[in-house]
Write a protein that binds this DNA or RNA. Sequence first.
DNA 1: CCTTCACCCTGCACGC
DNA 2: TGCGTGCAGGGTGAAG
Length: 279
Amino acid sequence: MPELPEVETTRRGVLPNVANLKITDIWQSHMNLRQPLEAITGQQLLNHAIQDIYRRGKYLIAKTSHPHLDLLIHLGMSGSLRINSEAEPRKKHDHIVFSFTNNQQLRYHDPRRFGFIKTINRGQPVKELAHLGFEPLDENFNAQTLFKLSRGRKRAIKTLIMDQSIVVGIGNIYATEALFTSGIHPEMPAKWLSHAQAQHLSDNIKKVLLAAIAAGGTTLRDFVHSDGTAGYFKQTLQIYGQANQPCPICSQPIESKVIGGRQSCYCPYCQSMPKKPGD
DNA sequence: CCTTCACCCTGCACGC
DNA sequence: TGCGTGCAGGGTGAAG
């Protein structure tokens, strides 16, 4: 599931393979992605090049040589960007293929089609990016800001840190891991977060994201690097997907329940729910 | 305003 | 072996 580390890994893998190469062809399947593809069918980017790729949260923005169009990319649940030789046959679920002058291709592959690629107007507001919150690896995201953002909110702390309008890039895997290493129950009301807990949680969010980027992301099922290889952070996950297994710290069985519509693993002993705020 | 929830989709694990 | 069922989850928009 592409979260911030997987999107960042994708960015780093793709950019050197496409930078400043002229786009000679754009092919797309007839399957609709989460957003319709009309903006690309015009082939407006033909004979232009991708010059740089930025990341904002789980979005990638490809800056092009076109006078006013860039590309906005979201990998959804199961999307990946891969570099292939044009001689390699397209795979099922390859939905958009950019061909370049060096006979290489950039292919957007997405079985579940929750993601999308669309053109955006450079310099104009982009609605998908407008509401996004803090970048978790930015120094502006810290104990102080997390503490402030959690005031007055009774919602579960886990859904708060997964809310992209609060802080971007954290999905179920890294939220689960960061709450475990911080010893915080995922269902604790956000407003109960103490300043010390905000310090631990903001630190541990940064730590787990940086460690996952260093490991090339987490491959559970669909995520692959631009060269098709897997990320190996999965071996480092301590608690995600480990329901009923012993806690790596105290050996008590890990529990699992649905919080905010997402399956959530936690250790009932190491992440006990306080009786009241500050416990 | 704040929060929750159904929906989109396919592949895979599971039980019979 | 093969079928049916349920689950996985990011973002959105509607409902509460």
